[in-house]
Design a protein around this nucleic acid. Sequence first.
DNA 1: GTTATTTTGAATCATGTAGTTCAAAAATCA
DNA 2: TGATTTTTGAACTACATGATTCAAAATAAC
Lengths: 210, 210
Amino acid sequence: MIQNNAKPRGRPRSFDEKGALEKATQVFWSKGYDGVTIDDLVAGMGVGRPSLYAVFGDKRTIFLRALRAYAEAKGARAAKALFSPRTLRDSLASFLRHAVEAATEEGSAPGCLLVCVAPLVDDAEVRQFLRDAASAGVALVERRFCDGISAGEIPSDFPVAVRASQTVDLARGLTMRAQMGALRKTLMNDAEEAADLLVLPRRGNATLGG
Amino acid sequence: MIQNNAKPRGRPRSFDEKGALEKATQVFWSKGYDGVTIDDLVAGMGVGRPSLYAVFGDKRTIFLRALRAYAEAKGARAAKALFSPRTLRDSLASFLRHAVEAATEEGSAPGCLLVCVAPLVDDAEVRQFLRDAASAGVALVERRFCDGISAGEIPSDFPVAVRASQTVDLARGLTMRAQMGALRKTLMNDAEEAADLLVLPRRGNATLGG
DNA sequence: GTTATTTTGAATCATGTAGTTCAAAAATCA
DNA sequence: TGATTTTTGAACTACATGATTCAAAATAAC
């Protein structure tokens, strides 16, 4: 652990930097990037205006920092949900349930900063970050599918890349429905159904006739 | 056709009301609700400020009108895509391809007003409209699945409601990826894959062992 | 205690934005 | 042509917002 034990010389800060950033995340999450004013951040973060600019920078910089911290934390939780269960099907269910939980958390705004808010920030750096984060997410799920092949749960010609992408698409769908006010109970059910769907092998005899 | 042939008495308008509303749709679509200023609308719609207020009302009213017109048009196109093809699988593919086409149209912003912009407008009426529109969309797809049962394409115990909801979730996922800059070619491919997935019957022998 | 250093709150400034007003312009009707 | 009606462009007002400044406050080092 790198730790700075040297106490700073001047007046100590009245706020916790990490905590303030999490509060900023909530502010952006509930109001959207363009809907947030500096006054909103000052009120929500509990940091005075001059300190806010000195420590965190302007609105755009604060958003980028909050976004990065949020994505890192969420990515870690998603990976845990994905790689803890034993079977592939349960891993997918756990992954999707986690998405639903995060999107329907009491005390937070519904939805997800990465899915519902960040995509419509008109900023090249944000867009690039989202693309990278999405790629990383799909890659993570794909790896879990590959583990499923190794474990003999799905055939070796299982379309892992396609299904990984579909998994993330369905997670996004659940998240967006959460934002629109769908009930957690409903979404949890749908997460289970989605997990069942995603492990189905190709060419299951779909047609009965015609 | 109801038509008002009585020429109005005063100076004729320099703009087309319907066309101006479509232009407003584009403005909101590309900048997001909170990101749009009245000046943006004045510039984008080609309507002077006083005429804009007199004819269309304030920003919120303009958005609601644009949203309703957009949803109606999009719903009609979606229904056509869904009920024109012969087979269920092709109907789903057509529905999803339509979503991709609309979300990657040249000359429009990527994504979709209903999926990417409207959900984070902090307004009760907008939220209710979106919920209703989403329900109507799912109901439409579900009806197509039921037609598939009637036609003998899928078993009578096929989980039509679940799959309809999953179809819409996947369409939303494709739309969101379009907004994030995914290529139309990729998304079209994924639309086909999604259609294949959605018609798979339950309990296809997924497990080979363990 | 005194000094040096940093944070903080309040006040301030410049800019952007929503919404209105009003006279000029453009059309119809007599 | 002239009266009437409606639209339009430009200017204007009031307010919100982003960002900065500065002296007072709070703490460590001396």
